[in-house]
Amino acid sequence: MNREKKATDFSSPVFLLLLLLLWQLGAMKLSAAYILPTPLQILQRSWELREVLLTVHLPATMKVTLIGLAISLVLGVSLALLMDLSPFWHRTLYPLVVASQTIPTTTIAPLFVLWFGYGIWSKVTVSVLFTFFPIAITLCDGLRSARTEMLELLITYGATPFELYTKVKLPCALPYFFSAVKMAVPMSIIGAAIGEWLGAQSGLGYFSRRMMTQLDGAGVFAPVILLSLVAMASVGLVSLVEKRMVRWRGES
């Protein structure tokens, strides 16, 4: 595993640099910054816009993201527990939850603006819809991954149903939970940005759209870059917590 990691450490940034170089040259040749700004122009514009981006729009987006993520976690974990506890609810809900994944949330998102207005809640709804289902499904699968033999062994020791959860099911589901969160964090940021893009008074998605109307190509990209950076940093943070908490992952 280590060797593989070393190889990617070199190849991936080099490849990224090459792509950026290609972009830079292509955009310079095209010379139409309002459609395709060069990476350097984007960097420069980001620097110019740093104050309004970091103090107004980033906090607005993060607020939506965090609220959305919190709601998704509570809902997702509850639904996963419900489906694991009751075969009836598993039979009833699981197919629906999976089917709901096929709904293109983005296309119905404008409705939320109509329902919840331009305030924070229409964005939170989009963000929750993006992340709630993957969390519920992944966690439910995690709880079900607990080996029957392990559960039975604890039953022979006289364990209560609650102890079966705390000692077998939850530890088995913990790696799944972190996978779900790592998936959900960037998705909730994307969800928030899409929500803002459709209608808002602040936020990085809103800002990007405003720059679009002003034909400021680099200004469109600046908040997008910031969003990616924040998403990457958040996933990194979750991975760090995961490393501390999960001592075991996968088979055996």
């Binding site: 039975e152 022979t156 913990l174 999960v246 075991w248």
Partner: peptide
């Protein structure tokens, strides 16, 4: 009861 496979919990 000791089952067929050792069933040591890998996370403990």
């Amino acid at each position: 009861y000791m089952p067929q496979r050792d069933m040591l919990f890998p996370w403990r």
